[in-house]
Simulated assay, not measured.
Amino acid sequence: MPLSTYGVIKGTAIGHLRDADDDHYQIMLRAAGVMHRVAVNVRSSAPNAPSTVLFRCTTVLPASFTTALQALPAGAKKLPHKAGGLAIDYLRSDFVSPKLMRPLAPDVPGANNDLKDQLETATLKAMAQPGAMVYAFGAKWGPEKGKPDTYFHFTPGNGIHDIHMNQGNSGSFAADNGPWQDGALILEYPGNKWSAFFFAFQSQSFKTDATGNPV
């Protein structure tokens, strides 16, 4: 069934953790005075499939899409699972280009050569430039009343995950399948400059039916 809390959080990056755990790169956002954690997968835990994540970054997005993002108020917004709005679908949107996605290791020796490097460079750039905004698409959780965030320790715990394709899954992850609910991390820099990050797992299929299940 589709992700019930699919949406986008728009906020300012104020913190990051490169090595909080093996599977994610963590970003802290302030959005309309509320703290959120963005958990971005850098490794897959799917059984019987490569752990390396498929990745694509682009600086070119449709003007109609970026204009709609800029018009959003800061904070969390739930999105309907349909075309014509801000919901992203890797296989049905016209700007993701899944065929151009390539596997990228999460963390290897050297500079600017792995997925954590890519995320860290983009995040630090956003943190250093006043007015930069982060748009995190995925499944929201929280607020977790009385419970601090696991990594950044703000209270209440609050955030967004599933920042990756959310269709084409098999096995235990098939319950998450649905169209128009794919995750992404998009950063806006001053001067109308953009970096958009799209993620998928090698266990996922790029051929799905109308319900998001693999064909």
Rank of each mutant, 00 (worst) to 15 (best):
G85K: 01
P179E: 01
P98W: 08
D176Y: 10
A49F: 03
Y25E: 10
R37W: 06
F137A: 09
H36F: 15
H81Y: 03
F137D: 08
F152H: 12
G138L: 08
K78S: 14
M28P: 00
N166L: 05
N113W: 04
H161Y: 01
P62L: 05
Q70P: 04
A13C: 07
P190R: 04
G15C: 02
K207I: 13
V34S: 15
L79C: 13
A83Y: 01
F173W: 12
H81V: 02
D89K: 04
T123C: 10
T155L: 11
N113L: 02
P109H: 14
T66L: 09
L17R: 12
A174R: 10
I88P: 08
N166C: 08
P106S: 12
G146A: 08
T211Q: 15
A196F: 04
H164S: 06
D94R: 09
P109M: 07
D23G: 03
K147I: 15
D176P: 00
L119M: 12
E120A: 10
A68V: 04
G142A: 07
H24G: 01
A210C: 05
P106Y: 03
N166T: 14
L185W: 10
K10V: 11
G191I: 12
G191N: 09
A68Y: 03
H24L: 03
F95W: 15
L79P: 12
F198E: 08
M35F: 14
P47L: 02
Q70V: 11
T52K: 04
S205P: 12
L29G: 09
P106N: 13
A71E: 15
E144F: 03
K207M: 05
F173K: 15
G142F: 07
I14A: 02
T121G: 02
V134Q: 05
A174S: 13
G178K: 06
V38Q: 08
A111E: 11
S195C: 11
R43A: 04
F95Y: 13
L79D: 12
P214S: 10
P47F: 04
H153T: 11
T5D: 11
P190C: 09
E188W: 02
D107F: 03
L86I: 11
Q129L: 15
A13M: 02
K10F: 02
L104D: 00
A49Q: 07
R37H: 06
F198A: 02
